[in-house]
Computed example of a mutant assay.
Amino acid sequence: MPIQLAKSLKLHRDKVWSIDCSNGMLATGSTDRSVKIIDASQYKLLDELDNTVHKKAVRSVAWRPNSYVLAAGSFDSTISIWNREGEEEMDNSWEMELLAIIEGHENEVKSVAWSHDGAYLASCSRDKSVWIWESDEMGEEYECISVLQEHSQDVKHVVWHPYLQLLASSSYDDTIRIWREYDDDWESAAVLNGHEGTVWSSDFEKSETQLRICSGSDDASVKVWKYVRDDEEEQQEWICEATLPAVHTRAVYSVSWSEDGHIASAGSDGKLVIYREAQPGQWKIVDQQELCHGVHEVNVAKWIKINGKTMLATGGDDGYINLWNWDTSSTSNKNN
Rank of each mutant, 00 (worst) to 15 (best):
S152K: 14
D219V: 05
E187R: 15
Q210F: 14
D219W: 01
L166P: 05
V191W: 02
S146T: 10
V158K: 07
S170K: 00
S207H: 00
V159N: 01
E143N: 11
N193D: 12
W133H: 08
V155I: 13
H161V: 02
Q153W: 08
I178G: 05
M138K: 13
S135R: 05
Q153T: 00
V158S: 08
S171L: 06
D218L: 07
A190L: 06
Q153F: 12
Q149T: 15
L211I: 06
A168H: 01
S188D: 02
S125P: 11
K206G: 01
H157E: 14
Q165S: 12
Y172A: 07
S146G: 09
D219M: 03
W200H: 10
S202H: 09
I213F: 03
S201W: 03
I213S: 00
G139Y: 01
R180C: 10
Q165I: 08
S202T: 14
L166D: 03
D127M: 07
Q149A: 12
S171H: 07
R177E: 06
D185N: 15
Y142F: 15
K156A: 10
F204R: 01
R212M: 08
Y182W: 12
L192F: 08
A189K: 13
T175H: 07
Q210W: 11
Q210M: 09
N193Y: 12
E134H: 07
E208A: 09
C124D: 09
E141P: 03
G216K: 05
S169P: 10
K223M: 12
H157I: 00
K223F: 03
W225T: 01
D184S: 14
K226Y: 00
R180G: 12
W225S: 04
T175K: 10
A190Q: 06
D173P: 08
E150C: 02
L166H: 09
R180V: 08
R177H: 11
D218N: 15
K226T: 15
T175V: 12
S188M: 14
S135G: 14
S188G: 04
E150S: 13
E140M: 09
D174P: 03
Q153R: 15
L148D: 08
S170A: 15
D136H: 01
S217W: 04
S221Q: 13
H195R: 02
E208L: 11
E134W: 02
V199I: 04
K128R: 14
H157V: 04
H161E: 02
W160M: 00
H151C: 13
D174W: 09
Y142G: 04
D127H: 08
S169M: 10
Y163N: 05
V147N: 07
R212G: 01
Y142A: 03
S129F: 06
T209S: 13
S202P: 04
G139I: 03
K206V: 05
L167I: 08
D219L: 02
D173K: 10
D219N: 00
S135A: 10
I132C: 09
K156H: 11
I213C: 00
H151P: 11
F204I: 00
L211P: 05
V130R: 11
W160D: 01
T209F: 08
V222M: 06
I176N: 04
R180Q: 14
K226I: 01
W225D: 04
I178Q: 05
V199D: 00
